[in-house]
Structures are given as structure tokens and as C-alpha cells.
């Protein structure tokens, strides 16, 4: 195994104007560090609005132009500048976008999945492969000729996934591939992802669908308010979750309909007022004094990477 993709101390901020004049920096990703090997799936979970999609966009080099970015992203040890990002995008690095608005409304489904090719021969190969993937997903030949507005939510999602499967990438960045899919399509996607991993692909799987994360990934990173708060072995997302060390991660696990559907009060704070100290302290029942003053550093504990002064080590 070798490191395919390394993200180190990545920060992203937007400058925003308030009341017309006052300019403020909105820091939406802070010192994010994570890596992916070949033959590995790293799942990224976290609160809505924690910076997961922006992380994906930074790796692909498709952030809006008013975003400021700091830190390092490396592909096989090589620093990815804009040029390299563009060279890899859609080829060595495939992207499954979160928004179904990414489908071109004016293009038939089949044409956009296949993309532009010059050689007729290559095109035939792709057409055949496209049909195989569509068959797997129960997308009939009628769907080939449809425009995006004619697709149901789940069908559009399947089309986005198919596009990424058609290329021969080394890395896949999947941003929410499964919402709105029915059970059978979710299982199909899980099989596809695992098969790709076995072939050697490295993947970042961004998702709220913890079932898919558990079935496919090796490690799970959890984000909150732009910070990585825990990176843990996927097997810790099981049973009563007693090896999940961060209080937010534990709440997330206990909130699942298949575990306890437990209510945790409190919402992620606004990026305009990132709290001093631990990003979770306003909602954390486990806080201690220093949580209010200092930002906990990422550290290793029982094989888990964690950002917390008072982790749930004894299975509370």
C-alpha cells in the first residue's frame, strides 16, 4: 500500500462583505489532515454544513474563485497545483457530485454519461459499458434517451454514479452517492464501491448514509464546523459504539434510526461566530474547563485520531 492522496492542514475561507462595507473572513475548513491509500475507502461523515463538499471541491480544484485555500494536497507524494488538479480531474480522479443539478439539463442521459470521445471505436466500448452499468441499476433503454427533468430523484443519482464508474480512475471522490436510492440500488452501489476498492482504487466517500459507510469503508473521519474531530476504524461503528471516543461522534451514532434514534439538543454554531476553544463545547455534555479556552489538538488515542480534551474512553 502507498499513500495515494494526502491532505495536510487544509484550510478554506471565504471573504464576505457584511452590511456592504465590513469585510470578514469566513473560515469554513480548518487545518484538515487526512489521507487515503490505494485499496482503501475513507468515509467522511459529519454535521450538515461541516465542510465536506468543500473538501471534495478543493481536491478537485473546483472551488469558487473567492475561496482562499491554505495547506497541502498531494497526489502520490506530489504537490497538486491547479495544473495537476486539472490534468487529473475526470481522468485519474473521478468525482460523483452531491447535487443532481450537475446533470446537464439539455443533454440526453446516455450522452452525458459517455462524455466526449473522438474515436468511434472507443465510443462503442463505452456505449457497451454504459448499458451494462445501467442494466445493473435497472435503468431501461428508454432512460438512455431521457433528459434529466424526466428522471426521478433516485434515477438521477444512479446516472451520476454511472458516470464515475465508466472511467478508469485511480481515485474516486464520491459526495453523497446514495441519498434517495432504494434499498436495492444502495446494495448495488455498495457492491460496486467494494469491487472498485478491491481493484486498487482509493476513495473518499462523503456521506450521511452510515450504513453504506460501514459496509464499504476502512476508516471513518468525522467533521464538525470545519474541523476533523475524529478518525476511527470503521469497525468501531458497531454495537453500542463504545469505542467511538468523541462526544459528537457518539451522538451521531446513537441518533441513527437503527440504533437509538436518540435526540441530542443543540445545533452547529454559525461560521460567523466560531466559538473559542473546542468547536463542539456549546453543545457538549462532557465539557471540562479548558474546552472553553483552548482548541484541542488532534492526537492519537487507542488507535483513534481525536480532537478532544475529555474523550469517552471508558465507554460511558
Amino acid at each position: 500500500m502507498s499513500k495515494l492522496l494526502e491532505v495536510e492542514k487544509l484550510s478554506i475561507s471565504f471573504s464576505q462583505y457584511f452590511k456592504g462595507l465590513e469585510q470578514r473572513e469566513l473560515k469554513v475548513l480548518s487545518d484538515l489532515t487526512m489521507d487515503v491509500d490505494d485499496h482503501e475507502i475513507l468515509a467522511v461523515l459529519g454535521s450538515s454544513g461541516s465542510g465536506k463538499s468543500l473538501l471534495a471541491h478543493a481536491i478537485l480544484g473546483i472551488l469558487p474563485s473567492n475561496a482562499k485555500i491554505a495547506g497541502s494536497i498531494r497526489y502520490k507524494g506530489k504537490e497538486m497545483d491547479d495544473e495537476l488538479k486539472e490534468e487529473l480531474r475526470g481522468k485519474k480522479i473521478s468525482f460523483i457530485p452531491q447535487s443532481v443539478n450537475n446533470l446537464n439539463p439539455l443533454m440526453k442521459v446516455k450522452d452525458q454519461v459517455i462524455g466526449y470521445t473522438e474515436s468511434e471505436e472507443e465510443k462503442q466500448v463505452l456505449v457497451k459499458k454504459q448499458r451494462e452499468i445501467f442494466n445493473q441499476y435497472n435503468l431501461s433503454e428508454e432512460v438512455d434517451e431521457m433528459y434529466p427533468f424526466q428522471l426521478s430523484g433516485g434515477m438521477a443519482r444512479k446516472v451520476l454514479i454511472s458516470t464515475a464508474l465508466l472511467n478508469d480512475p485511480e481515485i474516486i471522490i464520491a459526495d453523497e452517492p446514495t441519498p434517495g436510492l432504494d434499498e436495492q440500488a444502495v446494495e448495488e452501489t455498495i457492491n460496486n464501491l467494494v469491487e472498485l476498492k478491491e481493484k486498487g482504487i482509493g476513495m473518499i466517500l462523503i456521506t450521511h448514509d452510515i450504513h453504506t459507510a460501514i459496509e464499504t469503508s476502512d476508516r471513518i473521519a468525522i467533521l464538525y464546523l470545519g474541523y476533523v474531530i475524529e478518525i476511527t476504524d470503521t469497525k468501531n461503528f458497531s454495537g453500542d459504539g463504545k469505542n467511538l471516543l468523541h462526544p459528537y461522534t457518539r451522538s451521531l451514532y446513537r441518533a441513527l434510526p437503527e440504533t437509538h434514534f436518540e435526540l441530542t439538543e443543540g445545533h452547529q454554531p454559525s461560521y460567523q461566530h466560531i466559538p473559542k476553544g473546542c468547536p463542539y463545547h456549546e453543545n457538549c455534555p462532557h465539557q471540562v474547563r479548558e474546552c472553553h479556552y483552548e482548541l484541542p489538538e488532534l492526537r492519537e488515542l487507542n488507535g483513534t485520531v481525536i480532537r478532544c480534551f475529555n474523550p469517552l474512553v471508558d465507554g460511558e
Partner: peptide
């Protein structure tokens, strides 16, 4: 609630 994290979904 499919696009929301599990904590927000319960809320």
C-alpha cells in the same frame, strides 16, 4: 431528511 446528518434528522 435524507440530506441531513443523523443528529439533525432526529431533531
Amino acid at each position: 431528511s435524507t440530506m441531513l446528518d443523523a443528529v439533525t434528522q432526529v431533531q
